[in-house]
């Protein structure tokens, strides 16, 4: 049987991979994918906690799952808006490469 620690480590690794994607890749679309990975890593922790921390009735704590539900909804909205922004950006600058987007540099 897998322990809670296993799930948390997997969740953490997933988060780290997502973070690495955000920090290392230059394509803004891939960075966005990395962000999605990080969100899902958090979801995994939440569901794991829900399963390992039963309520008094002997069932998982569904409040955590509702939380995950909300995260997924917000993430979907975020993806929609984020991708629209990327499209608008691409129209304006013809690039998705973050190193080319440095107008705010001093």
């Amino acid at each position: 049987m897998a322990t809670l620690a296993n799930y948390l480590i997997v969740s953490g690794l997933l988060f780290s991979v997502g973070l690495a994607g955000v920090l290392l890749r230059r394509n803004i679309l891939i960075i966005f994918m990395g962000l999605e990975l990080m969100l899902n890593a958090a979801n995994l922790s939440l569901v794991a906690f829900s399963r390992f921390n039963l309520g008094q009735d002997g069932f998982p704590d569904y409040n955590a799952q509702v939380f995950v539900f909300f995260v997924i909804t917000v993430a979907a909205a975020e993806v929609a808006v984020g991708l629209a922004i990327i499209v608008a950006l691409y129209r304006a600058r013809q690039t998705t490469h973050v190193e080319d987007l440095d107008t705010l540099k001093f």
């Binding site: 799930y7 999605e36 899902n40 979801n43 569901v47 794991a48 799952q65 995950v68 997924i72 993430a75």
Partner: peptide, 18 residues
Amino acid sequence: LFVTLDAFFIGVVQVLVY
């Protein structure tokens, strides 16, 4: 992984939405 945690609904939503 969600399904292994008996969170079937979240698993399904994960597949559908993501």
